[in-house]
């Protein structure tokens, strides 16, 4: 177990969660390096293809971060993300991807500590779950 380090792709909206990640940095809150952030403008922009692609390419987990309901910079993009994530979670299950590998979290710009917490928790969880069952397949396809 100790050898396995999960790879996590994180899609963070520019206005809240990406800013929270900046704040975690400015506040020098350290968290596991497993999380690699891709900046998107809004969580509502996260196309299911992005998530599938990440899993197929060997990600052990995918994290989508957006503003709290009601706080989306684009009025309600995060609601769309929420609906989409719910659906996608179901589809992913069909392919053997546990719902614990695909997280959606609301993290506001001021919640640097929350970002750290989520990063800690998710990494720990994935360490527990072990490598994604799709990795092999992904390599075949990719």
């Amino acid at each position: 177990m100790s050898e396995f380090e999960p790879k996590i792709v994180a899609f963070f909206c520019n206005w809240c969660t990406f800013t929270a990640a900046d704040l975690a940095g400015t506040s020098r809150l350290s968290y596991p390096p497993n999380i690699k952030i891709i900046r998107v403008m809004c969580s509502g922009m996260v196309d299911p293809k992005f998530v599938l692609k990440a899993f197929l390419n060997g990600a052990d987990g995918v994290l989508v971060g957006g503003c709290w309901p009601g706080d989306c910079h684009y009025i309600n993009g995060n609601f769309k993300a929420r609906r989409r994530v719910a659906l996608l979670t179901e589809i992913l299950k069909q392919y053997g991807i546990d719902e614990e590998r695909f997280w959606l979290r609301w993290i506001a710009a001021s919640e640097g500590n929350m970002l750290k917490e989520v990063a800690d928790l998710m990494t720990a969880k994935l360490r527990e779950l072990g490598p994604s069952p799709l990795q092999q397949m992904g390599q075949m396809v990719g």
């Binding site: 403008m41 509502g44 196309d47 684009y74 769309k80 989409r84």
Partner: peptide
């Protein structure tokens, strides 16, 4: 405004940000 709600949902991939 470029939020990408359309792109995230477009089934044919025609909508892009």
């Amino acid at each position: 405004k470029g939020c990408g709600s359309c792109a995230g949902a477009c089934p044919s991939g025609a909508a892009k940000v």
